[in-house]
């Protein structure tokens, strides 16, 4: 019981956060952070635990988002139905895909997930009558305040982490890891590797789809390039996993926090630092730097990944003993 105490305290703190943090800007960042916890954890199960690296998380994210959006535009029901059904739509897309593509191993499977995302993105663009094409889907948000969204995002994040925790400590978790470590050995131990890879994919698709449905509800606008985005969704999911720690339960939660912070740091030009410097010094080149930096977050991601892989190959959580030893000069065993 003692071990589950820190996460519970942490969740309680997060639940109390809107009471003290009234600023909508920071609440918005927290909602994004919680959404990325859900997506990162889902990616972590299929890629980190089962070892089937996916470059196409946006496919499932977009499925969830479009389920919510299309239900509203075509059936006139609330977009919140998307939160109930978005995950299952993602599973419905993921399972046939997995059934065919899990015959491929390693990099070939990763390439197939990339293709799945592109197929869906083009599909959503071309089927204008059904999806609205590049015009996208615009809905009226249900709440003016951000606080309800914050609590829904928090509930999703807690539920996804709790389910991940449960899964990796039970039979499927052991089977997922044995598939990652050696698929042939796993087969000889009685693991139906095809079936368990499909289960793992279904889990990842479900939670990523749920996050997509939340995104539709919260942002109120989607188009194919936003929700089926390779670098904003798929790559970001991978980065969240790698930075936090692949194959650790809490890694993606830490990774999500770092990545949302880094993304925001670049988007806001280091919170306006360079813009301010440019204005103060009157230097035109500094203003230019500020402009370039705000568009350079992908470059920033790239540098961050190189640094993380060189210094902390197991991510922040995976290499935590190392960090403790180096930074705080504490003994790992103590």
């Amino acid at each position: 019981m003692k071990k589950s105490l820190p996460p519970l305290v942490f969740v309680a703190l997060l639940a109390g956060l809107p009471l003290i943090m009234k600023d909508n800007y920071y609440l918005h960042l927290m909602i994004l952070f919680l959404m990325w916890v859900v997506i990162g954890s889902a990616w972590n199960l299929i890629a980190g635990y089962t070892g089937q690296v996916s470059f196409g998380d946006a496919a499932f994210f977009g499925c969830g988002a479009y389920t919510a959006g299309l239900l509203a535009t075509h059936l006139g029901v609330s977009t919140w139905w998307g939160l109930a059904l978005g995950g299952f739509t993602a599973i419905a897309v993921g399972l046939p895909f997995g059934w065919i593509c899990f015959r491929m191993r390693g990099a070939y499977f990763a390439l197939a997930t990339l293709a799945l995302n592109e197929v869906l993105r083009h599909g959503a663009t071309i089927a204008e009558d059904f999806t609205g094409g590049m015009v996208g889907i615009l809905i009226m948000p249900s709440f003016m305040s951000k606080i309800p969204y914050y609590y829904i995002a928090l509930a999703l994040a807690v539920a996804s982490l709790a389910s991940l925790q449960w899964v990796v400590r039970s039979k499927p978790g052991y089977y997922f890891v044995s598939i990652r470590e050696d698929q042939d050995a796993a087969e000889s131990l009685g693991v139906n590797t095809h079936l368990y890879k499909m289960l793992s994919l279904a889990y990842a698709a479900f939670w990523t789809g749920m996050a997509g449905a939340l995104y539709m509800n919260y942002m109120g606008f989607i188009d194919p390039n936003v929700v089926f985005s390779l670098h904003d969704i798929s790559i970001m999911a991978i980065l969240v996993g790698i930075v936090g720690g692949v194959g650790t339960v809490y890694g993606p939660a830490v990774g999500a926090f770092v990545m949302v912070a880094v993304q925001e740091l670049f988007r806001s030009g280091f919170f306006g630092l360079f813009k301010w410097l440019g204005a103060v010094s009157g230097s035109a080149s500094l203003v230019k730097v500020a402009e370039v930096l705000t568009q350079a977050h992908v470059l920033g991601f790239g540098i961050l990944v190189v640094v993380v892989i060189l210094v902390l190959p197991n991510g922040i959580v995976g290499d935590w003993p190392k960090i403790r030893k180096r930074v705080f000069r504490l003994d790992a065993g103590a």
């Binding site: 890891v177 470590e181 009685g190 693991v191």
Partner: peptide
């Protein structure tokens, strides 16, 4: 073909499942 990044016990638990 050891399941390298699992402990010996976890290797055998995976089999016992």
């Amino acid at each position: 073909k050891p399941l390298g990044r699992m402990t010996v016990l976890d290797n055998v638990i995976a089999a016992a499942y």
